Simulated assay, not measured.
Amino acid sequence: MDNIAGKKSALSWAVHLSVLVLVVLWLLPTAGLFISSFRTADQIAATGWWKALFASEQNLALRTGAPDSARQAGGLYVIEGNLLEGENPDARIATWGTTPRQLDEFKAGETGTTRDGASLTLKADGSYRMESPSPFEGKRGERLFAVAKLPPKFTLANYARVLFSGNATDSMAKAFFNTLTVTIPATIIPILIAAYAAYALAWMNFPGRALLIAVVVALLVVPLQLALIPLLKLHLAIGIGKGYLGVWLAHTGFGLPMAIYLLRNYMAGLPRDIIENARVDGASEFEIFRKIILPLSFPALASFAIFQFLWTWNDLLVAKVFLIDATGKTTVMTAQIVELMGTRGGNWEILATAAFVSIAVPLIVFFAMQKYLVRGLLAGSVK
């Protein structure tokens, strides 16, 4: 009875558990990126995204009012104010000190002595009172350091900076449309060329067909980095380098081997009777291709379109080589993210926001066409 056909395998739970683990591993980075895109730089530096809903402790560098803001009261020179106004109005100070090495020198509400000898009382809400029997000297206020608890905070400022930073040519919005300009033609052109080539290799008999199939398979393992410089020199020699046309043709050339291989395998698995009956009825090769092969090959076409779209959208290397523009008018999103990060690469909140903006379109494309992806990948595996 254990081998009855159709009985559920005892290891099905292991399959389900494995799928669940893979889904969680795939979703966690995306969720972390999404949450981090709404956090401030200080919060990202202090705690991980999984603590975004809880208060966090942060070290703050603060400065009191300038000496010229002092007033006289009862024979004393007094400077009052609130150190948390502006950026951190909801923070609560726990301890503070006069040097960054002694952040717990005084507790909130206690009165301490500054380096200039003035007495200073700093409360948890950031309000302070600094008194001195003699006039305050210098041009700048007293430097203080505090440990404060900040409540959870989410902001849209990161998205405003990413999408609308600088002028029109420097913003991520401009780079978004530049990426679409590169990606859409670089996805459509290889599909058009590969569909014709795949049909010829699958259903037309001509000398050297087997050799061409072998060449296509061999090209699948050739690293594209080997062809970048020779191809760039060719583009510059014929006058199409450093522009959209050059990057379209580069992506087409790099994507054609995979496209032809995938589509040829699918088309070769289509029923032969349909093709032969169409030929008997007098249909030409082009009519067979257009009216029969293309509609039946839609899953494979969609499958390759997903691969090509995702690869082209996320590409940085080919765009850096074939699409260099000093004015920034043709900068794609991957290159724009590098620019937004700056030379030191410390703006992690900008990286998270820009990365999530960049992956939004690929996610939509993938979920909209995922059913065709599986059908296209399994093409030709069974008869």
Score class of each variant (00 low, 15 high):
Leu351Ile: 10
Leu234Arg: 04
Gly241Thr: 05
Met172Gln: 11
Ile324Met: 12
Glu85Pro: 01
Glu131Gly: 09
Ala55Gln: 06
Val15Tyr: 13
Tyr128Cys: 03
Leu156Asp: 01
Pro207Thr: 03
Arg63Lys: 12
Ala250His: 08
Thr99Ser: 15
Ala70Met: 09
Phe298Val: 14
Glu105Cys: 03
Ile275Asn: 04
Leu53His: 12
Val217Glu: 08
Arg264His: 01
Tyr199Ser: 02
Phe177Ala: 07
Leu234Asn: 10
Phe154Ser: 10
Asn347Asp: 15
Ala46Trp: 07
Thr179Tyr: 00
Leu211Met: 12
Asn167Trp: 07
Val247Met: 03
Leu60Asp: 01
Ile240Glu: 05
Val21Leu: 06
Gly74Lys: 10
Ser119Asp: 14
Leu22Cys: 13
Thr95His: 11
Lys139Pro: 09
Lys383Asn: 13
Glu276Pro: 00
Phe367Val: 11
Ala108Cys: 02
Gly48Ala: 14
Leu262Asn: 00
Asp116Lys: 14
Phe286Leu: 04
Ile337Gln: 15
Tyr199Ala: 08
Phe34Ser: 02
Asn205Glu: 15
Arg279Gln: 08
Glu285Tyr: 08
Leu33Asn: 02
Arg344Ala: 15
Glu339Pro: 12
Gly32Thr: 10
Ala91Asp: 09
Thr181His: 09
Gly48Ile: 06
Leu212Lys: 04
Thr187Pro: 01
Gly75Asp: 04
Ala259Phe: 00
Tyr266Trp: 07
Val280Phe: 13
Gly75Thr: 01
Ala91Pro: 00
Ser297Tyr: 02
Leu11Tyr: 13
Ser171Pro: 05
Gln225Tyr: 13
Ala168Pro: 11
Met333Pro: 03
Ile275His: 14
Ser171Cys: 15
Val24Tyr: 01
Pro89Cys: 07
Ser69Gly: 14
Gln225Arg: 10
Gln370Ile: 10
Ala70His: 09
Met1Asn: 13
Ala319His: 05
Ser119Val: 08
Leu316Asp: 13
Ala10Trp: 08
Phe298His: 09
Ser56Trp: 02
Val15Phe: 11
